[in-house]
Design a protein around this nucleic acid. Structure first.
Length: 797
DNA sequence: AGCACGCCGACT
DNA sequence: GTCGGCGTGCTC
C-alpha cells in the first residue's frame, strides 16, 4: 500500500497540519510529490484540495485512513526544492502551511474547490432540450438554483442523468490556440473529386504543415464545417497548444558597456569566490547595474538561470528596458501590475525554460527557474522586501536559502545597505565590495542643510526656506529641472514645536510620542504610557507647538503660488493610477516638459533623470520621528537615495535638506555621503538597546471584537509562553506588553500586541512560540479572535 | 471554518 | 413521540 502526506488548502489554523491518506491501486504509479489531489475531509467527507508533499510505504496509525479521491495534475506543479522552501518558511516565520505553499505554487492554482454538475451524454432524452443544453457546460449549484430553482439535482444524480466533478474556484484559464495538421496515414482516395474545399485544405496543409485555424480558413477561403468533416474522417488532426501573451514590448538594444577596472575586479571576485554571498555597497550612479548585467551574461553562458529582484516601486519600464534590451526575448517579468493570466503565463514560461532571466518584485524570489545560478537583490535595504502577508518572509533570507539549495551566487546591492546586511558583511558572512565613485565621472551632489528653526526665527512660516526658494528660482531661470521630495505617509502624526524643534518624547523610552487624534492624547508605543497633548511647548513656552503633516498636495499648491510660470508636476499614491503614468512621467521629464517634479518615495527609485540639478527635501524629519528603532536608518537611506537623484549628468547637483534637527547623525552623515560613520553610530545604538542584528524581535498581535477579552486573551497566551521560558530556563528574553497596538481599533476590532526581544541564535524561543501558537499544545481557544505572528518585524510597533 | 452529533425544550 | 435550536468536538 502507498500512502501520501498532503497539505490542505486551508483557511483556519485548526486544521493546518499534514494529513495522511491511502492511495488506491489504480493511482499507484500516478502519485508524485508536487501534484495536487482532491481528498475527502471531515465527517461529511467534503472534498478539499491538497498537495502531495511526501509519499510513504508504511504508516502507523491507530485508525483507518481514507483514500484520496482524485489526482488533479498530470505533472507536478511545484518542485521538491520549492516545497522544502515552503516548509522552511513555515518554521522560520511561524506561518500556516496553506499560505506558505501559496507563495511557491503557480499563481491561481491554490484555491477553494467547487462542485459542478454536467449532463451525461447518454441521457439526451431524459431532459428537455433547453435544460440539456444548459448542462453541457458544467454549472455550479448556485447557478442551477438561479435558473431552475425546482430542479431535483439529487434525483438526477442518482439516475445518472447528471454527473458531477470538482473544479478549482475562479482558477485562471490557459490561453489556448488550435492548429490543424494533415494526417499522413490518411487514404486520400476516400475523398470525392467534387469536394473542392476539402481538397484545398488538404493541399494547403501538405504544403505548409501545421497551421492555425484562423490562418487556414483565411488562406483557403473555406468554412469551419469543412474542417469538422475532415476531422471526422481523420484526414486532419486538431492540435491544441497553450499560447502566451507578451508582457514586454520589443525594446531598443541596451548596449553593453565595458566595465571599468573597479567594476571588473568586483565582477571577477564574485565569480571566483568560495563564498557565494556578496554585498555591493556602491554610491548612487556607481554602475552596480552594469555589474549585474555582466554577471547575468556570464551565468547564462554556463546555461543557468538568473533572478533579479528590484523593489516593486522601482519596477518601472526603465528598469525592465535595461535587462530586456541587453537580453532580448530572454527576460520574464513578474510584478503586481500584471493581470492574473499574465502572471500565470510568465510563470509557466519560466517553468518551461523559455525564459532564463526573471526580473521581478519580491515574490519573484520564488520563480520556478531551472538551474538557478545567480540571484540579485537590488536596493537590498528596501522595506518592500519584507512580506506583510503570511508567510511574513524576509526576501533576503529566502534568497539565501534558495541560492544555498542550488549552490548559486547571491548578490545584494545598495547605496545604503541595511544595517543588518552590512553587519553580516563585516562579520565575513557576505563578501563586501565598496564603490566610492560614480562610474560616469559625475561628482556626488553638494548637500546643504537648512535649519528650519532659524527660518522660523526670521519670520518665515512657509514650507519653503528662503535658501531653497532662491535655489529653485535660480535653477528655473537657468532652465534646469528640479525635484521636490516630501514623504508624507501614515495617518498618525507627531507633535512638535515650530520655534525650538522640541518633539514630545516618552520619558521612559527613547522614542517620540505619537499623536492620536481621536483621543487627543500622546501615546508611547513602546511602553504604553500616555499624556495629554500640550497646548504650549514644554521646552520654550511657545504656542507654535502643533501636529505636523503637510502633504505633497499642499506642497504643489504652495509651489504654484510661488512659481506661477513654471511647469509643475506631482506624482504620488493619488496620481499614480494609470498603467502608463511612469512612461508619461519619464517622457515628460526627458523632453523637459517639467520644470519642478513633486513627489513621494516613488520618484526616488528606478528613474534616472539626467538633467535634474536641484533636489529639495522639504521635511527630512518625517521619517525620523516615527518612533521606531529603524527610523534613523530609514531617514539616512531616504535622504541619500533622494539626494542621489541630483546631478547624474554633467553638471554637479545641489541638494537642500530642510530639517528641524540639523545635528542629527543620520542627516549629518547623508550630507557628507558618509555611510561608514553612520553605520558605526547606528550599530552602537542597536547593540546598546538590544535591537537587530544583535537581538531578534517577535511580535504577537491578537485582535477581537471585545476590548477587554482581547487583552485577556493575549495575557493568557503570554502566560503559557512565560511558563515555557521558565521551564526551559531561557535567558535574555525581553517582553514588552501586552499593549494596545498603535492603531488600537481597526474595523471595530481591538488590537493588542506583545513584543519580544531575544538573542539572535536562540532557536529554542522560536520553538516555544511554535508549540504554543502553531501546534496549539494548550488548545488555546481563539474563536472570535485573529492572531498574527511576525518574526523580525521591520517596524517594532 | 464547517459539519455532525447530541441533549433539551416546544409542539403535534 | 419527533422536530429543530445551538453548544461541543473533530477533521488523516
Amino acid at each position: 500500500m502507498i500512502y501520501v502526506e498532503i497539505v490542505l488548502e486551508n483557511k483556519t489554523r485548526v486544521t493546518d497540519r499534514i494529513y495522511t491518506y491511502k492511495v488506491d491501486e489504480q493511482y499507484k504509479h500516478d502519485v508524485k510529490i508536487g501534484k495536487r489531489v482532491i481528498v475527502p475531509f471531515g465527517k461529511g467527507n467534503k472534498k478539499r484540495l491538497g498537495i502531495i508533499v511526501n509519499i510513504l510505504d508504511e504508516v502507523n496509525f491507530k485508525f483507518e485512513l481514507k483514500y484520496i479521491y482524485k489526482i488533479v495534475d498530470k505533472n507536478p506543479i511545484v518542485t521538491t526544492d520549492l516545497i522544502e522552501l515552503a516548509f522552511y518558511m513555515r518554521d522560520r516565520y511561524l506561518s500556516d502551511f496553506s499560505s506558505a505553499f501559496q507563495t511557491v505554487l503557480p499563481p491561481g492554482n491554490w484555491k477553494d474547490l467547487e462542485e459542478v454538475y454536467f449532463v451525461n451524454e447518454n441521457s439526451i432524452n431524459d431532459l428537455d432540450g433547453e435544460t440539456y443544453n444548459f448542462f453541457i457546460k458544467p454549472r455550479s449549484y448556485e447557478d442551477i438554483q438561479k435558473k431552475y430553482p425546482n430542479l431535483n439535482i439529487t434525483e438526477l444524480l442518482e439516475n445518472n442523468i447528471l454527473k458531477t466533478k470538482y473544479i478549482i474556484k475562479n482558477s485562471i484559464k490557459e490561453r489556448k490556440t488550435y492548429f490543424y495538421e494533415y494526417n499522413k496515414n490518411f487514404k486520400l482516395k476516400s475523398i470525392r473529386k467534387n469536394a473542392k474545399s476539402q481538397i484545398k485544405i488538404i493541399d494547403y496543409l501538405k504544403n505548409n504543415g501545421k497551421t492555425e485555424i484562423k490562418k487556414l480558413l483565411k488562406n483557403t477561403s473555406t468554412s469551419s464545417s469543412v474542417l469538422k468533416t475532415l476531422e471526422k474522417k481523420e484526414a486532419i488532426i486538431k492540435i491544441e497548444e497553450v499560447s502566451y501573451g507578451k508582457v514586454i514590448e520589443e525594446n531598443e538594444i541596451y548596449k553593453k558597456i565595458t566595465l571599468n577596472n573597479e567594476q571588473k575586479e568586483i565582477f571577477n571576485k564574485i565569480l571566483k569566490s568560495e563564498n557565494n554571498f556578496n554585498l555591493i555597497h556602491g554610491v548612487t550612479g556607481s554602475g552596480k547595474t552594469e555589474i549585474y548585467l555582466h554577471l547575468t551574461e556570464q551565468i547564462l553562458k554556463e546555461n543557468k538561470s538568473v533572478i533579479i529582484l528590484v523593489p516593486e516601486i522601482s519596477l518601472t519600464p526603465q528598469t525592465i528596458e535595461r535587462f530586456s534590451g541587453r537580453f532580448p526575448n530572454q527576460v520574464a517579468v513578474l510584478h503586481s501590475k500584471l493581470t492574473p493570466t499574465e502572471k500565470l503565463e510568465q510563470w509557466q514560461q519560466i517553468e518551461n525554460g523559455d525564459y532564463k532571466i526573471v526580473v521581478g518584485a519580491r515574490s519573484a524570489v520564488f520563480a520556478p527557474v531551472k538551474n538557478l545560478g545567480l540571484l540579485i537583490i537590488d536596493e537590498e535595504h528596501d522595506t518592500s522586501y519584507y512580506s506583510e502577508k503570511n508567510p511574513k518572509y524576509n526576501t533576503i533570507e529566502v534568497a539565501e536559502y534558495r541560492t544555498r539549495q542550488n549552490n548559486a551566487k547571491l548578490v545584494l546591492g545598495s547605496a545604503t545597505p541595511s544595517i543588518e546586511s552590512y553587519y553580516k558583511a563585516k562579520e565575513g558572512y557576505y563578501n563586501l565590495f565598496t564603490i566610492m565613485n560614480r562610474a560616469t565621472n559625475s561628482s556626488l551632489p553638494k548637500v546643504n542643510i537648512v535649519d528650519m528653526r532659524e527660518e522660523l526665527k526670521a519670520g518665515n512660516t512657509s514650507i519653503f526656506s528662503s535658501k531653497l526658494k532662491e535655489a529653485l528660482e535660480e535653477n528655473l531661470s537657468l532652465g534646469n529641472q528640479s525635484i521636490l521630495f516630501l514623504n508624507k505617509r501614515g495617518h498618525t502624526s507627531y507633535i512638535f514645536c515650530r520655534r525650538c524643534g522640541y518633539v514630545e518624547m516618552c520619558q521612559h523610552c527613547d522614542v517620540s510620542m505619537t499623536y492620536h487624534k481621536r483621543s487627543n492624547r500622546l501615546v508611547c508605543h513602546h511602553c504604553g504610557r500616555t499624556k495629554y497633548k500640550p497646548n504650549i511647548c514644554p521646552n520654550c513656552g511657545s504656542r507654535y507647538i502643533k501636529e505636523f503633516g503637510a502633504g505633497t498636495e499642499k506642497l504643489e499648491e504652495e509651489c504654484r503660488k510661488l512659481f506661477p510660470d513654471a511647469n509643475i508636476y506631482r506624482i504620488d499614491g493619488d496620481t499614480n493610477t494609470g498603467k502608463n503614468t511612469y512612461t508619461n512621467l519619464y517622457n515628460k521629464m526627458k523632453n523637459k516638459e517639467i520644470d519642478i517634479l513633486i513627489g513621494t518615495q516613488m520618484i526616488t527609485k528606478g528613474f534616472d533623470f539626467k538633467d535634474v540639478t536641484l533636489v529639495g527635501i522639504v521635511a527630512a524629519d518625517i521619517s525620523l520621528n516615527v518612533g521606531d528603532y529603524k527610523s534613523s536608518e530609514k531617514t539616512f537611506q531616504l535622504l541619500t537615495q533622494v539626494a542621489g537623484r541630483a546631478g547624474r549628468g554633467e553638471s554637479t547637483g545641489n541638494v537642500f535638506i530642510q530639517t528641524y534637527k540639523p545635528g542629527h547623525y543620520s542627516i549629518m552623515a547623508s550630507k557628507n555621503h558618509d555611510y561608514e560613520s553612520f553605520y558605526n553610530l547606528e550599530i552602537e545604538y542597536r547593540k546598546r538597546f538590544k535591537y537587530p542584528p544583535f537581538y531578534k524581535l517577535l511580535n504577537i498581535k491578537v485582535s477581537g471584537k471585545n476590548r477587554t477579552q482581547t487583552r485577556l486573551k493575549l495575557f493568557e497566551i503570554l502566560r503559557y509562553i512565560q511558563n515555557n521560558i521558565k521551564k526551559e530556563k531561557l535567558k535574555n528574553i525581553e517582553i514588552i506588553g501586552p499593549n494596545p497596538s498603535p492603531v488600537n481599533r481597526i474595523n471595530d476590532f481591538f488590537r493588542f500586541d506583545i513584543h519580544f526581544k531575544f538573542e539572535k541564535n536562540d532557536l529554542d524561543f522560536l520553538k516555544i512560540i511554535k508549540r504554543v501558537l502553531i501546534e496549539d499544545e494548550y488548545k488555546i481557544n481563539l474563536t472570535g479572535f485573529k492572531l498574527s505572528i511576525t518574526v523580525n518585524p521591520i517596524s517594532f510597533f
